[in-house]
């Protein structure tokens, strides 16, 4: 996939930041909501910012403050937080073939959210090896900073912001599905992939509508993977995951 942004050889981190800008449309409004909800749940703005900085995993943070506010046992709060984040275990290995030798990569994995993974999975294979670390650092840092900044904003002035720009809070998050659509569209390379990916999207959407947002990603992905393994369109058209992943 060709991208708008021309990769500048000297400043790949800047390219990474530029390409991560669409993520902000989704991150900032949600982070503002988190900051607001955390303070309403009894956390101070400072504590809300620390949670966003250290945990940095949207859905689990909402669950964390919600369960703490409801008086749940702390061991259960931690267990549920980690359970929701369990899907992250498959992200880094999928990027590993494109990661260059550097001790910085493990630390940068703190920034490997769902959205940053989706972006990096599409972009890293297209970048020269020398630019990947800088690109990922720039993209991940911008996303992280926007999440932490949005939390601070929400904790300090969330109520007023939501009241004043309610419509913006509804419109800007559409940048996320638009971005993911652009990232997933080039992967419809065959009938087999098209079926598996369409099923995944529909199952994820259906589970979200039914209120199972936290289960939606791993369950839908499992359905899609199973579909890809089971459904084949005859020997002549048989496609293999190994061949397709190079596209």
């Amino acid at each position: 996939m060709n991208l708008d942004a021309v990769t500048s050889p000297g400043r790949p981190w800047l390219t990474g930041m530029r390409e991560a800008i669409p993520l902000l449309g989704g991150y900032v409004p949600v982070a503002i909501s988190f900051g607001l909800i955390a303070t309403q749940a009894g956390f101070t703005p400072w504590e809300a910012v620390v949670i966003s900085t250290l945990v940095y995993a949207g859905a689990s943070q909402f669950l964390f403050v919600g369960m703490v506010a409801a008086g749940a046992p702390l061991w259960l709060v931690v267990a549920m937080t980690l359970l929701i984040n369990l899907r992250h275990v498959v992200y880094a290995p999928n990027l590993a073939p494109w990661l260059t030798p550097s001790r910085a990569w493990p630390w940068l994995m703190h920034g490997l959210t769902d959205q940053v993974f989706a972006l990096a999975h599409a972009r890293l294979p297209e970048l020269p090896a020398a630019q990947r670390l800088g690109w990922f650092g720039g993209a991940a840092l911008l996303a992280w900073a926007s999440w932490v900044g949005g939390t601070a904003l929400g904790a300090l002035a969330g109520g007023e912001l939501v009241a004043r720009w309610a419509l913006m809070g509804e419109i800007l998050p559409f940048a996320l599905p638009a971005l993911f659509l652009v990232l997933v569209a080039p992967r419809f390379t065959s009938r087999r992939w098209a079926l598996a990916l369409s099923l995944t999207i529909l199952v994820a959407l259906a589970l979200t509508i039914l209120g199972f947002t936290n289960l939606a990603i791993p369950l839908a992905a499992a359905c899609g993977a199973l579909c890809f393994q089971v459904v084949k369109f005859g020997p002549a058209r048989q496609e293999h995951a190994k061949g397709d992943r190079h596209e």
């Binding site: 992200y91 999975h121 990232l183 990916l197 990603i217 992943r245």
Partner: peptide
């Protein structure tokens, strides 16, 4: 790819 599709969904 299926994780990205799920996140999109």
């Amino acid at each position: 790819p299926v994780m990205i599709a799920a996140v999109f969904g």
